[in-house]
Amino acid sequence: MRRIPALLTAALLTATLAACGGGDPLNTASGPETTSGQAIVVGSQQYYSNELIAELYAQALEADGYQVNRQYQIGPREISMPELASGAIDLMPEYSGNLLQYLDPSFVATTPDEILLALDDALPTGLRRLDAAEATDQDSYTVTRATAEKYELTSIGDLARLTQPVSIGASSEFATRPYGISGLQGVYGVEGVLTPIEDSGSALTVKALLDGTVQVADIYTASPAIVANDLVSLDDPESLILPQNIVAIASDKVDQKAAATINEVTGQLTMAELIALNRESVESQLPSAAIATTWLTEKGLI
């Protein structure tokens, strides 16, 4: 009779797993088209900070009387852009440089304004960009305060003072991207060797940097970890890294009045504000809706 607990466990697990199998998870993204009618569908990437910005848009629109349908945490750009182009999503926060690189890989633009102008041409018909925020969320070459002081580092080129090659913790794409290992060598003459860590500059990458497993880490500039751990992001005078200003991409369903509302939100989204929002999200673990409501109320936007 000792087998009974085992059988029960097995039965329970089977039941649980069977429950997970129902329904096609891919269907949810395209579902609202038929059900929402005139609602503006707000999407976000699979990135907490992006979802938070999307929630700012959503609540600002709702305060204006628009109906909003939220479709957050949509995979990478390869999935979200076709959804935008097809009209399944109407509004989504994006990052200027990476979006341009996705839409037009051949374009060589380096300043934020050049990128925005190029975006206007590169976006598919039916989509337009709204105002770009001052806030950027872009890759950075970041070191600890101790390393920065020891080698007197202020800009990326100063990394030449470290023993070569410099070990860098970043996602695997850093090996092939223009702003990664090859660009570092070509633009600044610094030799780098990559330790691939796939959590997009989050906790594990920060830990590797603090442990000294890597000397430099690629951490997004809007990450609250930079302030929290007193890290130093090195200057990039040669514009190796593409600027990534937050910019809303909108379909025709987003009318003039709605666009003006989004632009008001964007106008308040400075670098410091974005870091504060991200920090609130990481530290308080509150849902993005609560953080967005607080912020929008403070700014008098809702």
Binding site: S171, S172, E173, R177, P196, I197, L204
Partner: peptide, 20 residues
């Protein structure tokens, strides 16, 4: 294993995923 820099076949997977 490649998620935290250890290599293996996952290295190709992650690189392929991130660079399309």
């Amino acid at each position: 294993v490649a998620y935290v820099g250890g290599g293996g076949l996952g290295r190709f997977l992650f690189l392929g995923l991130k660079t399309q």
